[in-house]
Write a protein that binds this DNA or RNA. Structure first.
Lengths: 320, 320
DNA sequence: TTAATAGTGTCTGTTAGACATTATAGG
DNA sequence: CCTATAATGTCTAACAGACACTATTAA
């Protein structure tokens, strides 16, 4: 290491002398912004106006302003620019780092390291349509499932035999709604608390038929993170407004997980996890209902972690 | 977004034309390499020979070679350089991305984005001592607990009231060993499946009394990730040799978590999780034992995920 | 009235954890 | 013999999930 450390210090010194003479690596942030609109999981995307991948959808993002902002700040800025949200509305958005992608081949022009972020937002307005650039909008996640599947092809992904996991159903099997037909269940081998890894970034046909660059993989990683995250944290509430009903919260889980949940068990479970939700004392009016009593309203509680967690149904166990 | 997208494409073009005229941000990888030596959790560190932070310990790392390697490859290369391991030995090491840190102030010389990696390794040999640089070595994690605590000070960390969580003990309370006196339990509010976030990176007294730069915070994030990771994955076996006894595996958990576990319950639990370990049919000779039957030997199983998980004791629930 | 929903109650199988017990080895 | 450990057994409380039931509203 010693020789290396010295060499590093040396290069550091040179870099400090003239940064532009060094480090021809660009740093960007890309955002996987998820929202629920009309019972569908949508991701924010922009249509590229320039080569490469001109005309293709891509995740919103941009360069980090060197010396002027942190990665978190860059991500928040890009998200604000892309959605047109003001600081107040942005305060309600959950934003967390997802992982970094830095294969030399992921951008054909130069070596670009992208730090990906994951955002959960309540139903947001239409994205700001493009001026002269091609445009922006919310895309149904299932509509680009093929892109995800394509990006999932390469090596690192272990193909799992279609054996049954041991946990057959969670709160599940009953009244379920919104089966999300297009969505293919469990595309990722569920490396849940792990970092995304970036072994296969830039591999395979880049964005074959789907998102530009390796954004298909980034989206897949973001979705898996989202699905895992709402198991252990109350962040599902970040997809909802200030107050919500238990049914609306259940719809979030069903949409993100792509699986129906048992209404009764879910209801009791949510209320039993302390700090997840707290009652407002009011009842909602629920437009678009097809009957039934008015549901009570809740708001997000103070817990940052759910104990016990709300585990997903169909998690595959090891061979049993 | 449109205007922004156009601007981005423009800059992309310029960057492609002359990369050196753009992006004065350096990209490095830093490694949190953990190993178990003599029942202690050690982290690989190098002593800096140059300013800033000359003479201080830092995480091993270095610049990503632009256009020539991915982030994963850079991390593996740096780890190999620092430990002197060959490719074969490195194959037994688990290496995963931890998160990226990019506050403009985290390095006083220029804007440096560091992509941190986390490594689990079985008892490794002494690190290669420095040539002319100050040196390298394995540091007991608890010895730099103060540095972690210092880096944990700033804003983002929520101070938790000392109330009791509801899960009072896991496999626990019994015969426990190695109480890790210096280790302060639960320094991180346990945002487990989250990315580390980097809000406070570079905040506070940089490396006050501890590691250089924001490496104290990176180490803290790595430790939390490690503690969470062995709950859901069989990666605790990455700290051990090819074969091991259940007791040795328990020692890994006790050391990483810093809490004693109940031997009997742990034993039964591990064997009940399918694909965690598989018996070799042999029994070990266990030098240094103080009596008792010879334990059976196991090797790591094929499962990549533990179901059900081995949850840590003392995880705090929401207010109960 | 019918259908759909909110919210509760009850039952069963599984699991975590406390605790006890037996067997095997070293000093 | 004494002590420490390996490995297994037993008991209890908690929990997940299945299922049933009531009450309330829209159409």
């Amino acid at each position: 290491m010693a020789e290396h450390d010295a060499a590093r210090a040396e290069r550091d010194f040179l870099a400090a002398y003239d940064p532009r003479a060094f480090a021809p690596i660009a740093v960007t942030v890309d955002i996987v912004a998820l929202t629920l609109r009309a019972g569908r999981l949508d991701v924010l995307a922009v249509r590229r106006g320039e080569q490469p991948f001109a005309g293709r959808w891509a995740l919103p993002g941009g360069f980090v302003r060197a010396g002027r902002e942190s990665l978190d700040e860059a991500a928040a800025r890009e998200l604000a620019e892309e959605t047109g949200l003001d600081a107040a509305a942005l305060g309600r958005v959950h934003l967390e780092q997802l992982g970094s992608y830095g294969s030399p081949a992921r951008d054909p022009r130069m070596h670009v390291v992208s730090v990906a972020y994951l955002a959960f937002a309540p139903g947001l307005p239409e994205a700001r349509p493009g001026g002269d650039a091609a445009g922006a909008g919310w895309l149904p996640v299932e509509a680009i499932a093929e892109a995800i599947a394509a990006a999932e092809q390469p090596d690192t992904v272990r193909v799992r035999p279609p054996q049954q996991g041991r946990r057959s159903g969670t709160y599940g099997g009953g009244t379920g709604r919104r089966p999300l037909p297009g969505e293919q269940p469990g595309e990722r081998p569920g490396d849940l608390p792990a970092g995304p890894g970036e072994q296969a970034a830039g591999q395979g046909p880049p964005g074959a038929g789907g998102l530009a660059f390796d954004h298909g993989r980034i989206l897949a990683d973001g979705l898996e993170r989202a699905r895992a995250k709402i198991e252990y944290t109350p962040l599902a509430t970040a997809f909802l407004g200030e107050t919500f009903t238990i049914s609306e919260l259940r719809a979030v889980y069903e949409t993100v997980w792509g699986a129906p949940l048992h209404a009764g068990n879910f209801h009791r479970k949510v209320l039993s996890v302390h700090g997840f939700v707290e009652p407002t004392g009011e009842t909602g009016s629920r437009p678009g209902s097809r009957g039934g009593p008015r549901a009570r309203l809740y708001r997000a509680g103070r817990a940052r972690l759910l104990h016990p967690a709300l585990l997903r149904p169909d998690r595959e166990a090891g061979p049993r």
